[in-house]
Amino acid sequence: MSLVGPAQVELEDPLRLGPHVLRSRLIVGSGRYDNYRVMAESLAASGAHCVTVAVRRERQYDEQGENIFDYLDLDRYILLPNTAGCYNAEDAVRSAKLGRHILDALGNPGADWIKLEVLGDPKTLLPDPVGTLEATRRLVAEGFQVLCYTSDDPVVARRLKEAGAVSVMPAGSPIGSGQGLLNPNNLRICLEYLKDDDPDYPVIIDAGVGAASDVAIAMELGADGVLLNTAIAKARDPVNMARAMMHALHAGRLSYLSGRIPKRLYATASSPEVGVIARTCPPR
């Protein structure tokens, strides 16, 4: 007799985002790592197929004097350039075009899309909804596949979808705050609004993740994916945290697909109620 080993958590469950098909529903950022070596190991451990990058003035080297290109496997990852640091639509469009130009030259398939961020202020890094909507319209007109970072406001989310975003990406909580999903009810409404009559429309929870449980909760809510960076990069052990995020994503996704039980106020016995040897029980 042989014992059956634990089932492997291997989902053939790709994420379709515009023209791209991602092997993993976890999208990870490449920022804030202590060095590029740890970054490369963490990206690999996360199982991600898509990695976000920023567009910045040249001369970007880490403390070891190394360059991100030495550690980013361009054949393995689809890069997703962002417009982080932009506070108006004009700058976001400029950044997007510059990012596209570089990815084109690198021959990376991520050249046609952009993670749009138009921020309101540097303290909260909350999105500016007016600038985000304007930039979405302009970038869509320029032929970009726009993945839109936004707040958990369902009305703004719906407007961004109407403007042509290929994915709306509501934040769980402020960027890099590690506060997790502060308003799951708003995220539920975002999911409902965006997927009403269009169940395959991809919604990604972007920003705010602090620990693996946040990723599982996002996926259990019915999100199609999670985008995170700081929770891995600034963990005490980034490589193992990347692994934890991958497992949490699988756990949350399987849990969502399997259909959770309804919450009840009172208990329901899991052992049979007949055949109990005890004759009496206290009144309820």
């Binding site: 990058v53 920023a54 910045r56 003035r57 970007q60 991100i68 890069l79 982080a84 400029r94 510059l98």
Partner: peptide, 29 residues
């Protein structure tokens, strides 16, 4: 503030006071 495509790099000459931005990819989320 205008993107100069790669094939134009050998043709476009700079003039005094021009503002040039040269950007690359960096780690980001």
């Amino acid at each position: 503030r205008e993107l100069i495509s790669r094939d134009q790099h050998v043709h476009v000459r700079l003039r005094p006071g021009d503002e040039v931005e040269v950007v690359t990819l960096a780690g980001g989320g």
